[in-house]
């Protein structure tokens, strides 16, 4: 099947050599950039990621100490985000695979909406969070119940914003997993007299748990690193305590890094802290994404 290139005249062989070389160079360059970036972070911040760094509060205007509240805030944020977003995403994926007639206008609209949602800039989600969640929902909740804590940026509204932002990620992964469940299983279940919902709940979903897990992990990875969408929806640059309610503001790893590197009173002094924070944030998202990629490639092989 392989045709020998030696039958070609020399200029063409050279051209072919360069054609392959240029593609190879591009691939090597991209991988090189990634390795260079990670290597740079490791070299500059590797020694600063200590147990104390992870578990201490920042001191002295964020110029000393650790990142514990940012780490905890990010974790709380993505947990709440998963609770809000994954059920909705899973239900949408179930609709798209199990109920929708593929050519119906509704199914196509849902698909188009999901794709559009994936392409909306994250800063627009931030504005949506302010306009819809804080001003409209929060304002109305406050007016209705006489509270005053909902009409301002908070952990709750940030995770709701991120849940909307990561919705397409969840839907696409879960849909892929649901489609991977063999049709025979569904038909066998129906043939035994199970109803549609029973089939979905007892047969289809248990067989696609890994897919739902992958979707959630990918969403968490995306949400953990997202800063632009939560800039004005509840993140804060400094906090003495961990948030004790969902209506409180919180610290976030990515935002912490942004503040340290651009608004710190002494950027030079905190440079090691910045690199260490970068490493922690990158390590977190890296591990999450790697897990998801591994699970997914295993799923595809099956």
């Amino acid at each position: 099947m392989q045709f020998s290139a030696s039958t070609l005249p020399l200029p063409k062989r050279l051209l072919g050599f360069f054609a392959v070389l240029i593609a190879l160079t591009a691939a090597v360059a991209v991988v090189g950039i990634i390795l260079g970036m990670v290597g740079n972070f490791l070299a500059n911040g590797g020694t600063h990621v200590t147990w104390e760094f992870l578990t201490e509060f920042p001191r002295n205007s964020n110029t000393e100490g650790g990142i514990w509240p940012a780490l905890a805030g990010t974790t709380l944020l993505v947990m709440l985000m998963t609770l809000l977003g994954v059920p909705v995403g899973t239900a949408t994926a179930i609709y798209l695979t199990e109920f929708a007639k593929q050519d119906s206008w509704f199914a196509r609209s849902v698909r188009f909406a999901v794709n559009t949602l994936a392409g909306v800039p994250s800063i627009v989600f931030g504005l949506f969070g302010v306009g819809f969640f804080i001003q409209f929902m929060g304002g109305n909740i406050d007016a209705a119940f006489g509270t005053s804590s909902f009409g301002d940026g908070s952990l709750l509204w940030s995770s709701a914003t991120l849940a909307v932002l990561t919705l397409p990620v969840v839907i696409v992964s879960v849909e892929e997993a649901l489609r991977a469940v063999p049709r025979d299983l569904r038909e066998a279940s129906l043939a035994l007299g199970a109803t549609r919902m029973q089939t979905i709940i007892k047969v289809v979903l248990p067989n696609s748990v890994t897919g739902i897990l992958t979707g959630s992990i990918l969403a968490v990875g995306r949400g953990a690193g997202e800063v632009a969408a939560i800039l004005f929806v509840g993140v804060t640059y400094s906090s003495e305590v961990l948030p004790s309610a969902v209506t409180e503001k919180f610290m976030h790893l990515g935002y912490h890094l942004f503040v340290l590197s651009t608004q710190s009173p002494d950027v030079e002094k905190t440079l090691p802290l910045q690199f260490a924070t970068t490493l922690v944030l990158l390590g977190l998202t890296f591990l999450l994404n790697l897990t998801a990629i591994l699970i997914r490639s295993r799923l595809r092989k099956r």
Binding site: F41, G225, E226, G254, L282, T285, N289, S297
Partner: peptide
């Protein structure tokens, strides 16, 4: 052009770059 085992490394590698938080890329540039 890539051999299968190279593809198995390069493809997920570049996909990992998609998971880099943009604030990290921004910091790297800065």
């Amino acid at each position: 052009f890539a051999k299968p085992w190279i593809r198995e490394i390069v493809k997920p590698g570049i996909e990992l770059l998609a998971g880099f938080p943009s604030v990290v890329i921004g910091f790297f540039c800065l």
